[in-house]
């Protein structure tokens, strides 16, 4: 994440003001208020702000979220704001809790980088990697509402009629085990783009994954990173699912595996720090009619190990090739080692 100065924020606010006035169809000035850059990950920049303008004698206020692609994000060409915008538009009117997307600006000259502006949904998104976040989720879990809401929100993703919603533009895997092979191909290509030399453990993991790729019975929309930290919580309920960067049409067990993995919880048996296993299984299966296949989930946990290695290799590569000077990316050189060690353990050695 590049450094942001107050001058950068002021300049962006000024440009946004003009942009929004045009999009909102008002001749009155639009004020960009309370602009805040959220420090999350190494993907796109995320800014929250209010747009305020007068209309018919009253003050109009709209809470908005801006995502910008600086061109040096970890996922490289695997994450595209245009695709995110299209996915969010497709999800409007469905039961999926996704923010409403307003505008996509592909021309970097307009807002400084390709950008997506969506509604700001009420809610909080405490980081599950921090103690305060885990305490938040534990307390919410204890009140009994969020576990069901978390499960139901994922079920809604898997239940959406993706064909009718127009989501087949994401690419539809062929029958059989094409989904897994597509994912392996994707992360292999990210590893290649990273310039990383690879490692024999990675070769072993990829070989194993290709050899054991499972067939898929039912294709659904798959979020790709469903966990606490990627959902907004408002009054103990999921108000929006965030981070629509990794979605695909594929095996719902891919998402279920991400919920089940112990890597997405810390110091608790609650899945994703928030939902008891039994409740998740019962509710999810009832809501979707899909039986959770733990063997397939175990396969996907190994696929996530490959994805994790690819992410860290990409991050380290961005620093190594000078695309990004953030030292936290330099440090990910050793995160690759941790990811490979985990892969070896998952493979049984």
């Amino acid at each position: 994440m590049a450094h942001t100065t107050p001058a950068d924020s002021a300049e962006l606010a000024a440009v946004l003001s003009d942009y929004l006035a045009e999009r909102l169809g008002t001749t009155r000035p639009v004020e960009v208020c309370d602009m805040e850059r959220i420090a999350v990950g190494w993907s796109h920049e995320t800014w929250l702000f209010d747009a305020v303008w007068p209309q018919d004698g009253t003050e109009q206020r709209m809470g908005l979220c801006l995502r910008r692609d600086p061109g040096n994000a970890l996922l490289r060409d695997k994450s595209d704001l245009g695709e995110q915008f299209r996915v969010l538009k497709c999800l409007e009117g469905t039961d999926v809790l996704a923010p409403r997307a307003h505008w996509h600006e592909p021309d970097p000259a307009v807002l400084g980088a390709p950008a997506l502006i969506m509604e700001r949904v009420p809610g909080v998104c405490p980081s599950p990697w921090r103690r305060a976040g885990r305490e938040f989720y534990a307390a919410a879990a204890g009140r009994g509402v969020l576990p069901a809401s978390f499960t139901n929100a994922l079920a809604a993703v898997h239940n959406v009629d993706w064909r009718s919603a127009g989501l087949d533009f994401l690419g539809v895997p062929e029958d059989g085990n094409d989904f897994a092979h597509r994912e392996i191909d994707k992360w292999e290509s990210l590893i290649e783009e990273s310039g990383h030399e690879g490692h024999p453990i990675l070769a072993d993991l990829i070989g194993w994954l290709r050899h054991h790729a499972p067939p898929v019975d039912r294709l659904t929309l798959v979020h790709g990173a469903y966990r606490t930290g990627n959902v907004l919580i408002d009054d103990d309920r999921v108000s929006a699912i965030l981070d629509w960067e990794l979605q695909v049409i594929g095996d719902p067990m891919y998402d279920v595996a991400y919920v089940l993995t112990e890597l997405n919880r810390e110091g608790t048996e609650l899945l994703s720090n928030v939902v008891p296993r039994e409740l998740f299984f019962e509710r999810y299966q009832q809501a979707t009619g899909i039986e959770i296949d733990e063997e397939r989930c175990a396969y996907y946990q190994l696929l996530y190990a490959m994805r994790s290695a690819a992410f860290w290799m990409s991050a380290a590569g961005l620093y190594a090739d000078g695309s990004n000077s953030d030292l936290r990316l330099a440090r990910t050189h050793w995160s690759v080692t941790v990811a490979l060690e985990r892969a070896a353990t998952e493979l049984g050695y």
Binding site: P200, I201, D204, W334, S335, T337, V338, L340, E341, A344, L347, Y349
Partner: peptide
Amino acid sequence: LDAIRSVLRRDIDRRMDIAR
């Protein structure tokens, strides 16, 4: 593969001595 994996485990453990 088993023989290679034994070596890879020792190799990654050495790298983890540094990465941890």
